[in-house]
Lab assay of single mutants.
Amino acid sequence: GQVHVGDTTYHFPNPEEARKFAEKAAKENNLQVTQHGNTFKVE
């Protein structure tokens, strides 16, 4: 799974890890998570 936060892309071998990371980043920054397959975008 990939997580895009601003201009930075994080790669995770496990989509579940990617999702947890995205949700945590979104919560900390008052942002939203959008999911496209195994790619998550925090914005």
Rank of each mutant, 00 (worst) to 15 (best):
G1V: 12
G1M: 10
G1I: 11
G1T: 10
Q2M: 14
Q2Y: 15
Q2I: 15
Q2A: 11
Q2R: 12
V3Y: 01
V3T: 02
V3M: 01
V3K: 00
V3S: 01
V3W: 01
H4K: 13
H4V: 15
H4N: 08
H4E: 13
H4Y: 12
H4L: 14
H4G: 03
V5L: 14
V5R: 03
V5A: 04
V5M: 14
V5C: 10
G6D: 06
G6W: 10
G6Y: 09
G6K: 06
D7K: 12
D7L: 10
D7I: 07
D7Q: 11
D7G: 14
D7F: 09
D7Y: 09
D7T: 12
D7R: 09
D7W: 09
D7E: 12
D7M: 10
D7H: 12
T8Y: 13
T8N: 12
T8D: 10
T9H: 09
T9A: 06
T9P: 03
T9N: 04
T9C: 06
Y10V: 05
Y10I: 06
Y10P: 01
Y10A: 02
Y10F: 11
Y10Q: 02
Y10K: 03
Y10D: 00
Y10E: 02
H11A: 06
H11R: 06
H11L: 12
H11S: 09
H11Y: 15
H11N: 10
F12I: 01
F12L: 02
F12V: 01
F12G: 02
F12C: 12
P13Q: 12
P13D: 14
P13E: 14
P13M: 09
P13F: 07
P13H: 10
P13R: 10
P13Y: 08
P13A: 13
N14R: 03
N14D: 13
N14A: 04
N14S: 14
N14H: 06
N14T: 15
P15M: 15
P15C: 13
P15E: 14
P15A: 14
P15R: 13
P15T: 14
P15Q: 14
P15L: 15
P15G: 09
P15D: 06
P15F: 15
E16G: 05
E16P: 00
E16Q: 07
E17C: 08
E17W: 04
E17N: 03
E17Q: 07
E17R: 01
E17F: 03
E17D: 12
E17K: 03
E17V: 06
A18Q: 01
R19L: 10
R19V: 04
R19G: 05
R19M: 07
R19C: 10
R19D: 03
R19S: 05
K20W: 09
K20E: 13
K20D: 12
K20N: 10
K20I: 13
K20Q: 13
F21T: 01
F21M: 02
F21Q: 02
F21W: 09
F21A: 04
F21I: 00
F21H: 04
A22L: 02
A22M: 00
A22Q: 00
E23N: 08
E23W: 08
E23Q: 08
E23Y: 13
E23A: 06
E23T: 07
E23H: 10
E23I: 10
K24A: 14
K24M: 13
K24T: 11
K24V: 10
K24L: 12
K24Q: 14
K24G: 08
K24F: 11
A25G: 02
A25H: 15
A25R: 08
A25K: 13
A25F: 15
A26N: 01
A26Q: 03
A26F: 01
A26L: 02
A26K: 01
A26T: 03
A26H: 02
K27A: 13
K27V: 09
K27F: 12
K27G: 08
K27L: 13
K27P: 00
E28P: 06
E28A: 11
E28Q: 09
E28D: 12
E28M: 09
N29K: 12
N29M: 15
N29H: 14
N29F: 14
N29E: 08
N29T: 08
N30A: 08
N30G: 14
N30R: 06
N30S: 09
N30K: 09
N30T: 05
N30Y: 06
L31P: 02
L31S: 11
L31W: 13
L31Y: 09
L31E: 05
L31G: 14
L31A: 13
Q32R: 14
Q32H: 12
Q32L: 12
Q32K: 14
V33M: 08
V33Q: 01
V33Y: 09
V33W: 10
V33T: 03
V33E: 01
T34H: 09
T34A: 06
T34K: 08
T34N: 07
T34Q: 07
T34F: 12
T34G: 03
T34E: 05
Q35G: 05
Q35E: 07
Q35R: 11
Q35P: 04
Q35N: 06
Q35M: 08
Q35K: 07
Q35I: 09
Q35F: 06
Q35W: 07
H36A: 09
H36L: 12
H36Q: 12
H36G: 04
H36F: 13
G37M: 05
G37L: 05
G37H: 05
N38H: 08
N38E: 05
N38G: 06
N38F: 07
N38I: 05
N38P: 07
N38S: 09
N38V: 05
N38T: 10
N38Q: 06
N38C: 05
T39K: 07
T39R: 05
T39G: 06
T39D: 10
T39W: 08
T39H: 13
T39L: 13
F40Q: 03
F40I: 05
F40W: 11
F40D: 03
K41T: 15
K41V: 15
K41I: 15
V42F: 03
V42P: 03
V42W: 00
V42Y: 01
V42A: 03
V42T: 04
E43T: 11
E43K: 05
E43D: 11
E43C: 10
E43G: 14
